[in-house]
C-alpha cells in the first residue's frame, strides 16, 4: 500500500485514553492514534497487541531516497510501530527465532522523516538523539524500549510473521509481525520525557 493511496487516519476513537490495567501495565493496541500516544508516559510498562513492522539499518537506508523523492514506502507507516530487530531464523514449526531489539540510535537519521509521515511508534533499545526526541514531541510519537538480549523470551509473544519487502536483505527484510501482549516500556514519550535520564538520576549514588 502506497502512502498516496489513502490519506485518512487509521480508524480509532480520537479521545481514547490508554489506562493501566489492574497489574499496572498499559495495554496498547495498534494502530496508534495521537490520543493513544499522548496517554503514554516514560516509564510506563506496556503490553502491545496488534502489528509491528520490523526494520533496521539496511531497510531504513532504502527508505531514505523514497522519502526524499516523496515516493511510497513498502508499507503505510501511519499509526504504525517499527520494531528495530533482525530476528534469528525460525526452526521448522516455529513462528520466529530470537527477536530482541537492536540499538535505536542507528536509525536516528531516518526517524524524524518517518514520524513526519505519520509513524507513531518505534521500538528498540538505547538512547535517541535530541532531533528524534523533538520529532516525537512535534508529530506525537513514542519510543518504546524492549529488553535487549531477551530475544528468546520475546519470541513467545509473536503469533505470525510475513515478509513485506526487501527479502534480499535476509534478517534485515521488513516483516509484518502479529504480536499479542508484547512487553515493553516507554522510554521517550511525546511530552519530552526520557526514562534513561530519569532512571539514572534516581539511582546514581
Amino acid at each position: 500500500m502506497g502512502l498516496s493511496a489513502d490519506r485518512t487516519r487509521p480508524a480509532r476513537s480520537p479521545t481514547r485514553v490508554i489506562k493501566a490495567s489492574p497489574d499496572g501495565i498499559k495495554d496498547v493496541t495498534t494502530p496508534l492514534s495521537d490520543a493513544d500516544v499522548e496517554s503514554l508516559k516514560s516509564g510506563d510498562r506496556v503490553r502491545i497487541t496488534g502489528t509491528l513492522y520490523t526494520g533496521r539499518d539496511a531497510a531504513h537506508a532504502r527508505f531514505l531516497p523514497l522519502m526524499d523523492e516523496d515516493k511510497p514506502l513498502p508499507f503505510d507507516v501511519r499509526g504504525q510501530i517499527i520494531y528495530y530487530t533482525g530476528p534469528s531464523p525460525a526452526r521448522p514449526g516455529m513462528v520466529i527465532g530470537s527477536v530482541g531489539p537492536t540499538t535505536g540510535s542507528r536509525m536516528d537519521k531516518y526517524a524524524p522523516k518517518l514520524l513526519a509521515l505519520g509513524l507513531k511508534g518505534m521500538m528498540g533499545k538505547g538512547s535517541r538523539s535530541m532531533e528524534v526526541r523533538a520529532a516525537l514531541r512535534k508529530y506525537k510519537g513514542v519510543y518504546f524500549g524492549a529488553v535487549g538480549g531477551a530475544g528468546a523470551v520475546l519470541s513467545r509473544y509473536v503469533r505470525k510473521v510475513e515478509i513485506v519487502a526487501y527479502e534480499d536483505l535476509g534478517t534485515e527484510a521488513i516483516r509484518r509481525m502479529e504480536v499479542e501482549g508484547f512487553p515493553a516500556i516507554v522510554v521517550n514519550d511525546c511530552h519530552g520525557n526520557d526514562l534513561y535520564q530519569e532512571g539514572m538520576k534516581a539511582y546514581a549514588r
Binding site: K125, G145, E198, G199, M200, K201, A202, Y203
Partner: peptide, 11 residues
C-alpha cells in the same frame, strides 16, 4: 554507582 542499571532503566 552511575545509576544506569539493567537496560538503562535506572538501577
Amino acid at each position: 554507582r552511575l545509576g544506569i542499571g539493567p537496560q538503562g532503566y535506572g538501577g
